[in-house]
Computed example of a mutant assay.
Amino acid sequence: MVRAWYMDDSEEDQRKPHHLQPHQPVSQQDLQKLGVNSYKLDAENYETDPELAKIRKENNYSWMDIITIREDTLPNYEQKLKTFYEEHLHLDDEIRYILEGSGYFDVRDNLERWIRISMEKGDMITLPAGIYHRFTLDENNYVKALRLFVGEPVWTPYNRPADDFEARTKYLHLLAQTA
């Protein structure tokens, strides 16, 4: 299962863990209150994994592809990493399943503090539409991830501020209900 913690505000390399001192872990239950769900799956057998098939069917994740983020495979690698790390939201849920490698998703809590979510092989995460977040590799500089979508893939980031979107309004309503 993913590990999560509150981040420091250091300007150090974004690929470092950035643990707040003293360390403040974030529980799976706290992530769920933010609408963030995670799963531990069998990445070695993702094509035939019945648990992944069940999750896909229950959530109507009908489309998928694989993205590899590594300097020698991703065109404009450095620029893409900067883009992924800009705080943004999407109008649809974001679903990522780590098949190889590792990285971090950062999300904002209801008090605007950054939470870092460490993901490695076998971890799958769903981020709700409207949540501000960002992504970066860790110091291993490599991840291969399965991207899942409901219907045709849409991956348009809306950089902050993007508070006028209906997805953001709905997300804030969800947060108010779980508070």
Rank of each mutant, 00 (worst) to 15 (best):
H88M: 07
P153L: 09
L148T: 00
A145Q: 10
L91W: 09
R56K: 15
R116Y: 06
L137R: 04
S62R: 05
P157Q: 03
Y6K: 04
S102N: 07
L148K: 08
V36K: 08
D93F: 04
V107S: 01
R96K: 06
N59M: 00
R96P: 09
N60Q: 14
P17G: 00
T156E: 11
A53C: 14
Q21I: 14
I131Q: 06
L81G: 02
Q29W: 09
R96H: 07
E12M: 12
I125N: 06
E100Q: 08
A176P: 02
L99Q: 05
H18M: 06
I67S: 10
M64Y: 12
Y39M: 12
D93I: 01
K33C: 09
I117W: 01
K170H: 13
L148C: 08
H133N: 04
R113S: 08
T73R: 14
M7C: 11
T83H: 13
G122K: 00
I117P: 00
T136N: 14
E94I: 01
G101S: 00
F105K: 06
K40I: 14
S118F: 13
D163K: 07
N45Q: 11
G122E: 07
D106G: 05
E100V: 01
R15L: 09
K121S: 10
Y39D: 13
N76M: 10
F149T: 02
S38Y: 11
V107Q: 00
Q21F: 12
H23S: 13
R15V: 04
I55M: 10
T73I: 03
T136V: 11
L172V: 13
L52K: 00
Q14N: 14
S38E: 12
P22T: 03
D163H: 11
A145T: 08
K82P: 08
Y6S: 06
K57Y: 13
P50S: 05
R56T: 09
S102F: 01
V154N: 12
I55E: 11
V26K: 04
F135E: 11
F105Q: 07
M119L: 15
R134D: 09
E78I: 03
L91E: 15
T169D: 12
L146D: 06
N45I: 04
